[in-house]
């Protein structure tokens, strides 16, 4: 099989996976949401006339049997039509898309912060894991891993906004408002990444190729930077894909805490309002993002790992 055909086959396989995944998630979500309550009742209010409620139901097609609603939903979804928001009347997918940029900004900042902290710290911890200072720091990282991200967020607000008044904690208002939410979101990933990189570095340092490099006169720093760390980071790259789903769930909480105008906060608000179309569009978006990041890391992995790189010769 030549390279082009192999690539097309891999792509086709990926696309099939994506479609199956989206279909399964959407179906599950559709029925789960409808277990949650009646949006028409919620919209009409507690003391509304039954007639008003019925009118609202009819207007949004909520009066049809569930299976009919489901079929309409599936057919509409094929053309990426998620319907209009029950609370604002605007296009559901449009609402999500206009907040996509903010969510991606936050996620990107969090990944950058995580990398900037986890790679050097993990390398330091893993290079001489038996030393007392490393073990102490390792214990701290272990404890931090047990602290929920929203607590970190609230503590950061208390310190930097309430006490020190250095930073803003509300919305996306430029750089000073980015710092706290991005560090909060990063706190979901940092301890785990530090531990993975430290473990990978410690393992790499025991490899035979390290001894070979030592025998050619490499210094400790060269062993770490040229030999152990590249292998360790490569191993951790595979983790980014799986951790991205975790990051997305972290961004729901973080966006709510910091009133960040991303679609995570929108999703949380829409769930409480039983705004089905928006919830469906937002979850759809998360599924697509998680999938794309996973596929992206796979591609990245195969580009930077020579063992997976395709032979061109």
């Amino acid at each position: 099989m030549n390279r082009g055909a192999a690539l097309r086959a891999a792509l086709a396989k990926r696309l099939t996976e994506l479609l199956v995944l989206l279909f399964a998630i959407s179906t599950l979500l559709f029925f789960l949401l409808r277990l949650g309550g009646d949006p028409a009742m919620l919209m009409a209010g507690d003391e509304a006339d039954p007639e008003v409620v019925a009118l609202i139901r009819a207007q949004y097609g909520l009066d049809a049997p569930l299976w009919v609603q489901y079929l309409r939903y599936v057919v509409a979804m094929l053309s990426l039509d998620f319907g209009t928001s029950l609370s604002t009347g605007r296009d559901a997918l449009g609402l999500v898309l206009e907040r996509l940029g903010s969510t991606l900004l936050l996620a990107g900042l969090a990944v950058a912060i995580t990398t900037a902290i986890a790679v050097p710290l993990g390398a330091w911890l893993g290079y001489r894991p038996e030393r007392g200072d490393r073990q102490a720091v390792n214990a701290v990282v272990f404890v931090l891993q047990g602290i929920p991200g929203y607590i970190v967020g609230l503590l950061l607000i208390q310190l930097f906004v309430v006490e020190l008044r250095w930073l803003t904690s509300i919305g996306n208002q430029g750089l000073s408002s980015w710092i706290l939410p991005s560090f909060t979101l990063a706190s979901f990933l940092v301890p785990k990444m530090v531990r993975v990189i430290a473990a990978n570095v410690a393992e790499a340092m025991r490899e035979d190729y390290i001894r070979t490099a030592r025998a050619t006169g490499a210094s400790g720093r060269e062993l770490l930077l040229f030999h152990a760390l590249p292998n360790a980071v490569l191993g951790a790259t595979a983790l980014i894909g799986t951790q991205f789903a975790f990051l997305m769930s972290g961004s729901l909480i973080t966006e709510v805490i910091f009133a960040w105008p991303g679609f995570g906060a929108l999703l949380v608000a829409s769930v409480t309002r039983l705004d089905f179309p928006v919830v469906q569009a937002a979850v759809f978006m998360i599924a697509v993002l998680v999938f794309l990041v996973n596929a992206g890391t796979d591609v990245l992995f195969s580009l930077i790992d020579p063992r997976l790189r395709r032979q061109t010769a």
């Binding site: 035979d208 190729y209 001894r211 070979t212 030999h227 590249p230 490569l234 790992d305 063992r307």
Partner: peptide
């Protein structure tokens, strides 16, 4: 195992 797998 004696040669670094990610270095040429």
């Amino acid at each position: 195992t004696g040669l670094n797998p990610v270095r040429s």
